[in-house]
Amino acid sequence: MKTFDFSVNGKPVSVALHNEDTPLLDVLRNELGLMGTRFGCGLEQCGCCMVLIDGAPEKCCARPVSIITGKNVTTVEGLGTPDAPHPLQQAFLDEQAGQCGYCLSGILISAKALLAANPSPTRAQIALALDGNICRCGSHNRILRAVEKAAAVMRGA
């Protein structure tokens, strides 16, 4: 057993594991019970498992937990709540941006990272920033509109 210490959504966590190569995604879902980050491929291809690691968007389905030690992880659960939604979550609700919703956790995280780096992205820049996230239902245009809307709200526009 080896212990790994890091923080998730601002709270320190400590996890004891036999396999130090356990992907961060498995730790979030199976050890910490945070099911909002989804498994899509295990190959870092689809973006369902996107989280922020020290603010940078990273796919965590194949990222060993050992390299997360001491870092800060933000998951979709760290964005907002139904009573106090993050502007992105509110904009996605307003635009009804989603169908099955399986990809949305990862897309919200990618969008959050984009808006932190670029508060006024063009639609093309948003699309490019989301190219690492696959949406199979075809809600792309609603999602782009929602991110634009959230950006405007966050700028105070």
Partner: peptide, 9 residues
Amino acid sequence: DLPAKLFGD
């Protein structure tokens, strides 16, 4: 069904 999906439920 959408809100729960946006809050990672």
